[in-house]
């Protein structure tokens, strides 16, 4: 019924060049940071960290604790609870918040490569996680242990926030229930299944963080992996790249609200 002439299909035209990572990523990081680092989140996570430090102080003043006990406390509170929980809350919110409040489209519909969005979210998460978790863990280690404990705690924390950060950035993108699934991973897999077999243990990030702490603090009782610290760092890098690549693939295929 139309009397409007039908336009002829256009041959492919030259598209506008994509925007470089050096231009787009700082702008995206600047936008993601305040959305993730909300006052409520930072206060709650800092309170958890402070609670750990206070418990550490109480333990140190209450008993004569030896080096091994100090390292075990750093591992039990810091690497088992604090670092994974902080990483879960922050990293899952980077892309998760954008997706939930339907603002991801403002990055997604721009002439920028998807990996830049994923990497920007990951870096924004690290910019919060490294100072927050690093500071709490360094103070905690200094409270209960010695210099080698502090060094071990800092390296283990860096290993943890990078690997957990990538994993939970991916999780925040693919599900709206990232916190619940993240807790299942931390509590069920790492806390229970990971201890049942050597293979399952190797699939848990905690085994690498505690091994890094164990080697640097020279406490063999926590050694769950035979890998040396450089190998642990390489494995962490591989895990990180794997999760970020998976997030990029998912973002390419996803339907954006």
């Amino acid at each position: 019924m139309t009397n409007v002439p039908t336009p002829q299909p256009s041959p492919p035209v030259a598209t506008r060049p994509t925007v470089s990572a050096s231009t787009a990523m700082p702008a995206m990081i600047k936008r993601i940071l305040p959305a993730v680092a909300t006052r409520g989140r930072l206060l709650a996570l800092s309170a958890v960290g402070l609670a750990g430090i206070l418990i550490g102080l109480a333990v140190r003043n209450g008993d004569q604790i030896d080096d091994f006990a100090a390292t075990e406390f750093i591992s039990a509170f810091g690497l088992t609870i604090f670092v994974p929980i902080v990483a879960l809350v922050i990293a899952s919110a980077t892309l998760g918040t954008l997706r939930e409040d339907r603002t991801l489209v403002y990055f997604w519909l721009r002439p920028i490569a998807r990996w830049q969005i994923v990497l920007a979210a990951f870096i924004a998460g690290l910019m919060i996680l490294v100072p927050l978790a690093g500071l709490v863990m360094a103070v905690l280690a200094a409270t209960v242990g010695d210099g080698s404990d502090v060094a071990g705690a800092i390296v283990a924390t860096l290993v943890g926030v990078v690997a957990y950060g990538a994993m939970f950035t991916f999780l925040g993108l693919i599900t709206k229930r990232a916190l619940a699934w993240g807790l299942v991973y931390i509590l069920i897999w790492e806390g229970f299944i990971g201890g049942l077999s050597r293979f399952a243990g190797r699939l848990s990030i905690r085994s690498y963080t505690t091994s890094a702490l164990s080697r640097i603090a020279d406490d063999p009782s926590l050694l769950t992996n035979p890998e040396t610290t450089p190998v642990i760092i390489v494995i962490t890098a591989a895990l990180t790249i794997g999760f970020l690549a998976a997030a990029t693939v998912y973002m390419n295929a996803m339907e954006v609200d």
């Binding site: 256009s10 492919p12 506008r16 925007v19 920028i112």
Partner: peptide, 14 residues
């Protein structure tokens, strides 16, 4: 403009 808007990042700038 002759391109796939889902896979061609450049066309998204248009």
């Amino acid at each position: 403009l002759g391109n796939n808007p889902r896979s061609d990042a450049g066309i998204r700038g248009r």
